Amino acid sequence: MTTTTRTLISPVQLNRPRGRRAYRIVLALVLLTATAVFLGPLYWMATGGLKSPQELVRTPPTLVPAHPSTHAFTEAWSRLGMARLLLNTVVYAGGALLLQLVFCVAAAYSLSKLRPVLGRAILAMMLASMMVPAAALVIPQYLTVLDLPLVHWNLQDTPWVIWLPTVANAFNVFLLKRFFDSVPDELLDAAALDGARPLRILWSVVLPISRPVLGVVSIFALVAVWKDFLWPLITVPGNETLNVGVNTAATSMPQNTLIAGLFLASLPTLVLFLVLQRTITAGLTAGSLKG
């Protein structure tokens, strides 16, 4: 018995020269439009830093710089102190990534394979926390880090004030659990028969085959810290991130220098995406099908 997949254009129409041409034209237009929508702002930032302040505000705007110059980029790097801001952001993002991997992997593995009592209720409460707007948590989190319960530490202006709130990420726990659910129990049982304990099974069996989803979780964790603005603004005023540093200096520099600084701030995440785009695709589809 053969099954056919229903699509917008039938195979019969695609086999006709006229239908094939129409399909290719429409596909090309859709791809070009999507590319322009996504790459347009990036192109505007890159070329805006190459323009002079006068050319940047010209009406109508110029698509290609008349006299391109990299002076705005070098000025943005020195005036903003991009090296210090970049180092601060890397430290915050790297620490958040490490803590998220440790705790989210442990939580997802426990819920998926160890199956604790009330595990489904715990997962449901985690997912329910995603319904709470992030802005509603700012004040409670801020009061908490000013006087950490039990130990009464003030974490303001320390990396821990960025790291700790990112540890419990319900979406990453859910994503990891879905992948761990697709790992055959027979594989874990075989390792257990060889004498491996749950922690050894996680380290030696589960994690090596979980690289795609771990890559996706890592990217989500890094980008979340990299793009955050409000929380670093109020908690680490003495050790600013890239976003906060660029915003602080926005009123005291020319527009082309500011745009150049914004492009430099976004460049690391763009490079990260281009290098790991296959990992993102593989990780998002991993665990969606069993068998």
Rank of each mutant, 00 (worst) to 15 (best):
M1F: 15
T3M: 15
T5Y: 12
T5N: 10
T7G: 11
L8A: 13
I9D: 02
N15Y: 11
V30P: 03
A34I: 13
A36R: 00
V37Y: 13
L39Y: 10
P41M: 12
M45H: 10
G48N: 06
G49W: 08
Q54G: 11
P65V: 04
T74E: 11
E75Q: 13
A83V: 09
R84M: 09
N88D: 02
N88G: 03
N88R: 03
L98D: 03
L98I: 15
L101K: 05
L101Y: 13
F103H: 01
L118M: 13
L118C: 10
R120C: 01
A124P: 00
A124F: 14
A124M: 11
L127D: 00
S129L: 03
S129D: 01
L137M: 13
L143N: 15
L143S: 07
D147C: 02
L150S: 07
W153F: 11
L155A: 07
W160H: 05
W163Q: 05
A168P: 02
N169R: 07
F171E: 01
F171Q: 05
L176F: 05
L176Q: 02
R178Q: 15
D185E: 12
D185I: 01
E186V: 08
E186M: 09
E186S: 15
G195R: 02
R197K: 13
R197Y: 12
R197N: 06
S210I: 11
I219H: 10
A221D: 08
A224R: 08
V225M: 14
W226H: 06
W226Y: 10
I234F: 11
I234C: 09
T235H: 07
P237A: 05
E240M: 12
E240R: 15
L242K: 08
L242D: 03
N243D: 00
V246A: 02
N247P: 00
T248Y: 09
A250Q: 09
P254N: 12
Q255K: 04
T257M: 11
L258H: 02
I259T: 13
I259Q: 09
F263G: 04
L264D: 03
S266K: 03
P268D: 11
P268G: 07
V271Y: 04
L272S: 09
V275H: 08
L276H: 04
A286Y: 09
G291D: 10
G291S: 10
